[in-house]
Amino acid sequence: MDHIQRIREEEKRYHESCYENYRLFEEGSWLHKPVKTVIDSFCMLSQNEKIKVLDLGSGVGRNSIPIAQNMVDREGDVVCVDILESALQKLKQYSKQYGVENKIKAIQSDIGTYSMGTNEYDFIVAVSCLEHVDSEQTLDNVLSRIEAATKGNGINCLIVNSELEEIDMQTNENLNPLIEVNLSTTEMLNKLQQAYYGWKLLQSTIKPLSFQINRDNKAVLLKTNAVTYVVQKQ
């Protein structure tokens, strides 16, 4: 198994465990509520009578279902792309449970190769998934495709991890982080600024985060600088 395969197997194991053990919008995990910045950014398009949304790395619908609930009186849909079939199956179940199945379109794909089209979407969101493409070059290509797929006055809301560290909580040993693209925070910000040159910057923040995860039955402290970047196409 090569390095990328190992990372993806571990991420699959982690996410599927979370999806099985915690229900959407119930307290106890990061699934208990949508990302506030995502919802606030989406609401900036509240005047649009017809809206099309792309949620990259959608998972089970943490953000896409609340967005769809905000669209019940408007035309349009939420295209949800995720590499895990198990996540999309639960997304379909939750979308029925929350009465938005007619707004959700689930697509299984690696976002690194997913074709987004041109001038297709009013709102594109990508939370903690862009760093999971297979290379820095692929990240550049995906950012270019996101930019091209956004309509005029459309908004992109990205949250990307940078400077990720993993530390064995028993031995305090620094481990090799299981992440495909692990850039410095400065490098990530520069990449985003270059990709969105000419766009209107609505928000740019860096938030240090740390939380415990499980790797091979070991408690591991994961530390990262989460970069939030919200921009509007002019």
Rank of each mutant, 00 (worst) to 15 (best):
V81L: 02
D82R: 15
I83N: 07
L84T: 08
E85G: 08
S86G: 06
A87M: 04
A87T: 07
Q89R: 14
Q89K: 14
K90M: 14
L91V: 05
L91Y: 08
K92R: 14
Y94C: 11
Y94I: 11
S95A: 15
Q97G: 01
Q97A: 12
Q97L: 15
Y98H: 10
G99F: 09
G99Y: 05
V100A: 06
E101F: 13
K103Q: 07
I104T: 12
I104W: 11
K105H: 08
Q108L: 08
S109N: 03
S109Y: 01
D110Y: 06
D110T: 02
I111G: 11
G112E: 03
G112S: 03
G112L: 04
T113M: 09
T113F: 11
Y114G: 06
S115T: 11
M116R: 07
G117L: 01
T118D: 12
T118G: 03
T118A: 10
N119D: 05
N119C: 05
Y121P: 01
Y121N: 01
Y121H: 01
Y121S: 03
D122V: 03
D122Q: 09
A126H: 11
V127T: 13
S128V: 02
C129K: 08
L130Q: 09
L130I: 13
L130D: 08
E131V: 04
E131R: 01
H132T: 07
D134E: 13
D134Y: 04
D134H: 07
E136A: 11
Q137G: 04
Q137V: 06
T138F: 02
L139P: 02
L139K: 00
D140Y: 09
D140H: 09
D140G: 05
N141R: 14
N141K: 14
N141L: 13
L143G: 06
S144A: 13
R145F: 02
E147D: 15
A148G: 10
A149K: 05
A149L: 02
A149E: 11
K151G: 04
G152E: 15
N153V: 09
N153P: 05
G154T: 08
N156T: 01
C157S: 15
L158Y: 15
N161P: 04
E163D: 15
E163K: 15
L164F: 05
L164V: 15
E165V: 06
E166M: 15
E166H: 08
D168Q: 05
D168A: 05
D168F: 04
Q170C: 09
Q170D: 15
T171D: 10
T171C: 03
T171H: 06
T171K: 10
N172S: 01
E173K: 06
E173L: 02
N174P: 00
N174D: 11
L175D: 02
L178V: 07
I179F: 04
E180W: 00
V181A: 11
N182W: 08
N182S: 11
